[in-house]
């Protein structure tokens, strides 16, 4: 398997907020290989957006490291600039992300100008617009954001990102603000870009349907941590973490599962529970199953990291199916903190 394009190692992001310190990202390990789509799934406040912003250096990690293409992402302006040519971002709200005073042409050309890309600017811009599905490009280029539809704005934003031929595309809820009918078109475009150009995509979303549509792997985040990660088929077909199971059960599309609506609100990253951070809402704890398994004390008192799912066929390091749950890893080795994603699977 190819070397990871992006490696995130034990990244923490802490903020100061009015309600006290917020631990938005609390130790995340993640690898992205070239040409794959990874869906980062979770509720708002789980730190998924902060995590991808820290990959671009838009927020500085408090600790931990991000390595892109063999280089550690630093804070210096020049290094960030180089990074921001190879890593591009697509935003949830295309209307806000385009300067209303700039034509689509100027918005797409902006990255080319910032990075002083050599060559025929008009040709590059038109090429990017057509590849993003805005054809004929010459007709769309001089238009302004308010003159085109929401779906076309998102296409323009993707064109602006792809004009620089990036190797990694970070997409923050790329279809959440779009109509249902437009959604599929944009997702098809993104998947097509991966297949044609070999770009990798990390898509932040709360929509498991998006993951099923385009993602090779899924990482489920809860309160600043990845609680389950694996190939899409594994995570959807055989969810291990009770949080993943609950998320899947409330997706209206999936009738097969009994609905498991978690009580309580979206968790608050300024007040992380002790022990397993999910235990106050965990159905395994609430139903008394944890007690039967004899792990209740560990659930409430012992923090845990990702561990390989027992019984799963061990593929390579990057594609392993991992989960952070005492009930799952009751018979697997538990490493309290640190190298969750590393190492071989136990027998």
């Amino acid at each position: 398997m190819a070397e990871p394009l992006l490696s995130v190692r034990d990244v923490h992001v802490r903020f100061a907020s009015r309600r006290g310190p917020v631990h938005a990202v609390a130790g995340v390990d993640l690898d992205v290989v070239p040409g794959e789509v990874l869906a980062l799934v979770g509720e708002s406040g789980c730190g998924k957006t902060t995590l991808i912003r820290s990959i671009l250096g838009l927020v500085a990690p408090t600790s931990g490291s991000v390595t892109f293409d063999g280089h550690v992402v630093g804070r210096g302006h020049r290094r960030l600039r180089r990074l921001r040519r190879s890593v591009q971002m697509v935003f949830q709200d295309p209307t806000g992300a385009l300067n209303p005073r700039h034509s689509l042409y100027e918005s797409v050309a902006e990255g080319l100008r910032i990075h002083k890309v050599e060559g025929d600017e008009i040709g590059l811009v038109h090429d990017a617009l057509s590849r993003a599905g805005l054809r004929p490009a010459a007709r769309y280029a001089p238009r302004y954001p308010h003159e085109v539809s929401g779906g076309q704005r998102q296409r323009a934003l993707i064109a602006g990102a792809m004009a620089l031929s990036p190797r990694l595309l970070l997409a923050d809820e790329p279809v959440a603000s779009l109509d249902a009918s437009i959604r599929g078109e944009i997702l098809a475009l993104m998947r097509g870009l991966v297949d044609d150009t070999g770009v990798s995509i990390v898509a932040v979303t709360h929509d498991l349907g998006l993951a099923w549509n385009i993602a090779d792997r899924i990482a489920v985040m809860y309160l600043g941590r990845i609680v389950e990660i694996g190939a899409t088929e594994d995570v959807i077909g055989d969810p291990q973490h009770p949080y993943t199971r609950a998320l899947l059960s409330v997706v209206p599309e999936l009738e097969a599962m009994e609905r498991q609506i978690l009580r309580g609100e979206t968790p608050d990253p300024s007040r992380v529970p002790s022990g397993c951070r999910f235990h106050p809402r965990c159905p395994v704890v609430a139903s008394g199953e944890a007690e039967r398994l004899g792990i209740l004390a560990r659930c409430t008192g012992e923090d845990l990291a990702l561990a390989p799912v027992p019984g799963a066929a061990p593929p390579d390091r990057v594609h392993a199916h991992l989960a952070a749950c005492h009930a799952v890893s009751a018979d697997a080795t538990i490493t309290a903190g640190g190298e969750g994603s590393a190492g071989a699977t136990p027998g």
Binding site: L56, L58, H77, L80, R81, R82, L83, R84, R85, Q88, M89, F91, D93, G96, A97, L98, N99, E110, G111, I114, H115, L157, G160, L164
Partner: peptide, 17 residues
Amino acid sequence: QRLFVERARALGASRRH
């Protein structure tokens, strides 16, 4: 605070730009 300024930053734009 506008998103298009954030986008410009993500594109690698300098403050001057």
